[in-house]
Structure formats: C-alpha cells, structure tokens
C-alpha cells in the first residue's frame, strides 16, 4: 500500500470543504445552512490537524481547538436567534428574511 502523505489529507479536506460549499449554495432552510457551515469548519480542522502532524508543530492543533470553541458558541447564539425568529414568523426560510429593504 502507498503511504498516506500530507497531500492526501489536504485533498480530503478540500473535498469536504467543497461539499460544505455546495450545501451553503444549495440550502434555503437556515437550520440546514448551519449544518453546511459545520461541515466547512470540520474540513478546515482536518487540514490544520494534518499540517500540525506532518510538520511536528502543535500550532495547527491549537487553531483547531479554537475553531471548535468558536463553532460551539456560534451554534448556541445562532440556534437562539433561530428559535426566536421561528417563534415570531413561523418559518426559517432564508428567502422569507427580507425585512430590510434598501
């Protein structure tokens, strides 16, 4: 079997990031849009961990930790806002959220 190199992990990370981008482009439901952003953050985490491992440096893992912390707080605030919006309007569609008309 061939050896797994850094490029393998970067390719995988890119594929997952592209999947997340497809989700962001495709989704109109805000809850499923949040799921797509979680995929984006996880794809980047894989790249950070792989680079950290192959260069023998811990900075990448540190960044991955802070990304996880940011993702957790993003979910808490975002879901709170989403629940509030659903209580007011009864729908969580992105297209229905056009209250700001310029």
């Amino acid at each position: 079997m061939m050896e797994i190199t850094l490029q393998h992990y970067l390719v995988l990370s890119t594929i997952l990031f592209a999947i997340g981008l497809i989700g962001v482009m495709r989704r109109k439901n805000l809850l499923l849009l949040f799921f797509a952003t979680e995929i984006l953050l996880n794809a980047v985490n894989i790249a950070f961990a792989a680079i950290s491992s192959y260069y023998g440096d811990l900075t990448g893992q540190m960044f991955a930790f802070f990304i996880i912390a940011v993702a957790a707080s993003e979910v808490a605030v975002g879901l709170g806002l989403l629940v509030l919006w659903y209580k007011r309007t009864g729908k969580i569609d992105l297209d229905a959220m056009t209250s700001m008309r310029g």
């Binding site: 992990y9 809850l31 949040f34 799921f35 979680e38 996880n42 985490n45 961990a49 792989a50 950290s52 491992s53 893992q61 991955a64 930790f65 996880i68 993702a71 957790a72 979910v75 808490a76 879901l79």
Partner: peptide, 22 residues
C-alpha cells in the same frame, strides 16, 4: 494523525454538545 486530545474533543464537543443542541 496522532492528535488524540483533539479527537476526543471532537467527539465530546461536536457529537456530544453541538449535535445534542441541534
């Protein structure tokens, strides 16, 4: 990748906390 702590954190925070919150 040898990042054991990060793997444990990934399971605890993402599948434990974030997914439960969702």
């Amino acid at each position: 990748l040898g990042a054991d702590f990060l793997g444990a954190i990934q399971i605890i925070v993402y599948t434990g906390a974030v997914m439960a919150l969702y």
